[in-house]
Design a protein around this nucleic acid. Structure first.
Length: 595
DNA sequence: CGGACAAGCTGA
DNA sequence: CAGCTTGTCCGG
């Protein structure tokens, strides 16, 4: 090509308003490659960094984000014009945060930009909701993150109010329902509020505190003055699919970048949160306040129980018999593994293998698979030909029958399909309920929460089992209403530090022991972990092993999964970012909850 | 991702 | 050899 004259270059005197925009198309296969476009003069006023645009790309129109407004184009080729500005998009600080998250969780930046974008097109922003008080003076470095420990029955709202008093805050709650309640209370207190993602435009306009669930970590908050994450230990803050970003970690980084204080509230602070707060910065309640907010813990040592009693100790039976609709008993039993048996939804016949007659489970290439011989087969009943099956929860169903006999009154099973207790109705009225730990999210209140087999939680083969077990006890404590209620735990490990912590209403009794154990085992938060799996995983691991990276080691494989371990996230994420992704699929989970 | 284009396959 | 499928390449 002769005499290259990049059309993107701005020359003195020639169309000074014809600018260049660098656009990141929302096309996964492009692996976050940005392209330069011309900004037509008619769109110049609307195009900003973050704007959501439609651009021609290879013969079609695709959505994308303006990620920069460079002085001149990167290439000498002829630039195409932006076709349309579809919507106001994430502000520049959120864009930068998305780039950081793409590094931190080894994922495509477009995934984060999608979460950060308004749910529908926003043509222009409404007027600001309030004066926009702007960020307060920065706090001393190193004290930006504070863990606020408050027992299960305590109300975290005062922390939210304290944060919102200092300026426009970002408040995250585990669910949209809880976020809506916090928002309503803030409004009653006279604080302008936007609920994300519904009121994205209102949030972007500024002058209000923004409240939402996980995705609200990406909401626009101009003049961010404080960040609060309620119940930071809750696993719902972490995205299950890769990239496995965690809203708590995003919120902490956001606060750091804004120079704003960040409060992480929890009855049982995660080791990750304690590490983020730098070890020392924990605001703990007085001993008596904390004690008042945890339930009375009763531990039944199953080793002392008469053999043959199974899951039903004398103490449990006594509580069951005393249960009334006002003084409910909620029994929790987490079954091992997944659905036990499948039965035809039409004729009720058990689904059995066409080769060996073994029981079928859902999964496999054709939809169902033999649990005994592994043969894949279609989900069609061999007896009546109907293709619909239901899972028989043999475990809980049988336990329900037996509890009913022992209690001498009706026992209702609560599953994920049971509507939550509340004005909607449909929640069982029985004095005794039984279900998996989902029952703790559905039942509003109970006098007693009984864990029939807590060893499944305490001794689960996962490095975070202890944290999860303590979180369950805290959850139970909330359902039981703190000191008003009691939590019964049947276990063969009554001396476990999780039970010790709950008994003394002092979660540090657990975190101190657990932290030392993690350090000894070289597990998070002492180190940073990632799990790599999928057909291309071996190639990725080979590159990491061959790269002579300081302090990065790979462990495995276990099945088709490897672990990558490094001293901290900087070396882990730098190493992962340097890997060339092979053609085959690779799943990278940074900070896996289960490893 | 999805359009463009080339190479490969098929049948009259 | 037209007309179709399948595979590979690449985007401003």
């Amino acid at each position: 090509m002769g005499a290259p004259q990049p059309p993107g270059r701005r020359e003195a005197g020639s169309q000074p308003d014809l600018r260049v925009a660098r656009v990141l198309p929302d096309v996964a296969a492009l692996a976050a490659r940005a392209f330069d476009y011309l900004v037509p003069a008619s769109l110049a006023a609307e195009v900003r960094v973050g704007s959501i645009v439609r651009v021609p790309l290879h013969g079609r129109r695709v959505r994308g984000w303006v990620v920069a407004l460079p002085e001149e184009a990167e290439t000498g080729r002829r630039l195409l014009p932006i076709a349309k500005v579809s919507s106001v998009g994430p502000p520049a600080d959120v864009l930068a945060l998305a780039e950081w998250a793409a590094w931190r969780w080894a994922g495509p930046v477009t995934r984060f930009l999608r979460t950060a974008s308004p749910p529908g097109a926003v043509r222009e922003l409404p007027p600001a909701a309030g004066p926009g008080r702007g960020p307060p003076p920065r706090r001393a470095a190193g004290h930006a993150v504070e863990v606020v420990r408050a027992p299960p029955a305590a109300d975290p709202f005062p922390v939210v109010e304290e944060a919102a008093r200092g300026g426009d805050a970002l408040v995250l709650a585990p669910s949209l329902g809880e976020a809506a309640m916090v928002a309503a209370r803030l409004r009653r207190a006279g604080v302008p509020v936007a609920v994300a993602p519904r009121e994205w435009a209102r949030a972007a306009a500024g002058g209000c505190t923004v409240v939402g669930a996980r995705a609200a970590a990406w909401a626009p908050v101009p003049g961010l003055a404080a960040v609060v994450v309620i119940d930071e230990h809750d696993e719902v803050y972490q995205e299950e699919r890769a990239p496995t970003w965690n809203a708590r970690d995003v919120a902490v980084e956001r606060a750091r970048r804004a120079g704003a204080p960040c409060w992480l509230t929890s009855p049982c602070p995660s080791l990750a949160a304690l590490a983020l707060a730098g070890g020392g910065s924990v605001r703990a309640p007085s001993r008596s306040d904390e004690r008042a907010g945890w339930p009375v813990l009763e531990v039944v040592d199953r080793r002392d129980e008469a053999p043959g009693l199974g899951l039903y100790s004398e103490r449990l039976v006594a509580l069951l018999r005393a249960a009334t609709p006002e003084e409910r008993v909620v029994c929790v039993l987490n079954r091992k593994g997944r659905a036990v048996l499948m039965a035809c939804a039409a004729c009720g016949e058990l689904a059995r293998c066409e080769r060996c007659d073994g029981p079928l489970e859902s999964g496999g290439e054709l939809g169902m698979r033999c649990r005994r011989c592994g043969l894949a087969q279609p989900p069609v009943c061999r007896w009546c030909g109907v293709g619909r099956f239901k899972a028989l929860r043999i475990g809980v169903a049988r336990v329900r029958d037996e509890l009913e006999l022992l209690a001498g009154q009706a026992v209702a099973e609560v599953t994920g399909d049971t509507p939550p207790a509340g004005p909607g109705g449909g929640f069982p009225a029985a004095a005794v309920l039984v279900g998996t730990s989902a029952v703790l999210h559905r039942a509003a209140r109970a006098a007693v929460v009984a864990f029939l087999d807590f060893d499944q939680e305490l001794l689960a083969p996962r490095f975070r089992a202890g944290e999860e077990a303590l979180a369950l006890l805290a959850r139970a404590g909330r359902v039981a209403g703190g000191r008003e209620g009691r939590v019964l735990v049947q276990t063969r490990a009554p001396g476990h530090e999780v039970l010790d912590a709950a008994r003394h209403a002092d979660p540090s009794r657990f975190t101190v022991v657990e932290g030392a154990r993690r350090a000894a085992l070289r597990m998070p938060p002492e180190v940073a972990l990632a799990r790599v799996s999928g057909p291309g995983a071996a190639g990725v691991v080979a590159q990491l092993d061959g790269g002579q990276l300081d302090g990065v080691e790979t462990l495995g494989p276990a099945g088709d999964r490897w672990l990558v371990r490094a001293g901290d996230h900087r070396s882990l994420c730098d190493a992962l970012a340097a890997v060339k992704r092979p053609g085959e699929r690779v799943r990278v989970e940074v900070d896996p909850l289960r490893a």
